[in-house]
């Protein structure tokens, strides 16, 4: 292993200051569940490791009226054990429960999952479906980035060198609709997703009033399927329509072949999971 410097600041301000000074020399470490394997695999060169896992002010789950805020270092386990998440934002709970295994979930953070920008990041599709935004800060500056604009490519994001994610927010109007998350992996735990789908759906008088769909591992980034959504809006759901919508999905996805699955399989499965999510949610509402 190579030589690293390591700092474990206690406040957000300290982190932002170090980021300002060190810029791309610093590598934020939250749970380390991506960073450590990257070091091992020599993907990350020798750097300053900036450990933010001990920063209490970034670990929270808050709901104020319909406004939700989740701190960046909130772990996947924190999501599962949160009562309000389970009861009022179950789509995120479903994703968290299918994430890795209990040991990894205790370390892995939601901020790290998004910042890592893997097409397979399991919290990304539900948050995309919730129209989430990211609170991003640098020394003396705050800005918000919509999650849909955040991912630029595999491991590429809209974050600047001196910026960090401090929190995630979304509104719960979309949560009045039931939501679901389905994951297909090569095994039931500790599996990087082959394909995932997250969907929220609102039906009124048998018509699709609102729908938001996002998928994982089917494109270079976690993907919102705007075309499929538009296609279904205001239409009566029936088998033929769902088949047609599946074709929209096939047009939108653009997966790759890797050790876990071929592009053809991923493409085909994306249609299957899309349909399954739709059926599951319509069964729940009817």
């Amino acid at each position: 292993m190579s030589q690293f410097r390591y700092i474990s600041p206690k406040t957000k301000e300290e982190v932002l200051k170090i980021l300002e000074e060190e810029k791309s020399e610093a590598c934020i470490v939250a749970g380390g569940s991506n960073v450590l394997p990257y070091i091992r695999d020599k993907i990350i060169p020798p750097k300053l490791l900036l450990d933010i896992s001990g920063i209490e002010e970034l670990n929270y789950i808050k709901k104020n009226g319909s406004n939700w805020r989740i701190g960046a270092t909130t772990t996947i386990s924190d999501l599962i054990s949160s009562k309000i998440i389970r009861e009022e934002c179950n789509i995120l709970c479903q994703a968290a429960e299918q994430f890795a295994d209990p040991l990894v979930r205790n370390k892995a953070t939601i901020g790290g999952n998004l910042a890592d920008a893997s097409p397979a990041a399991d919290t990304a599709p539900p948050l995309l479906a919730l129209d989430a935004g990211l609170e991003v800060e640098s020394k003396g500056k705050k800005r918000e980035i919509f999650l849909k604009d955040f991912f630029l490519g595999p491991r590429k994001t809209a974050l600047q060198d001196d910026e960090m994610i401090t929190g995630i927010n979304f509104k719960s109007d979309s949560l009045n609709k039931p939501g679901c998350f389905i994951k297909l992996g090569l095994r039931q735990a500790m599996a990087i997703s082959v394909v995932t789908v997250a969907m929220v759906l609102e039906i009124e008088e048998n018509r699709v009033k609102d729908i938001r769909v996002a998928m994982g591992s089917v494109a270079p980034i976690p993907l919102r399927l705007f075309n499929a959504e538009e296609f279904l809006k205001n239409k009566h759901l029936n088998d033929d329509l769902i088949e047609e919508a599946k074709n929209k999905v096939y047009e939108e996805v653009n997966p790759i072949s890797d050790i876990r699955a071929s592009a053809e399989y991923r493409c085909y499965i994306s249609g299957i999971l899309f349909k399954r999510a739709l059926e599951k949610l319509t069964n729940q509402t009817s």
């Binding site: 394997p37 091992r40 695999d41 295994d101 095994r187 735990a189 500790m190 599996a191 990087i192």
Partner: peptide, 16 residues
């Protein structure tokens, strides 16, 4: 293909 890493050398878990 797994580059020697067991992330991509999967064996069944108890859930299987």
């Amino acid at each position: 293909e797994c580059k020697g890493m067991i992330t991509d050398y999967k064996i069944p878990t108890t859930l299987e």
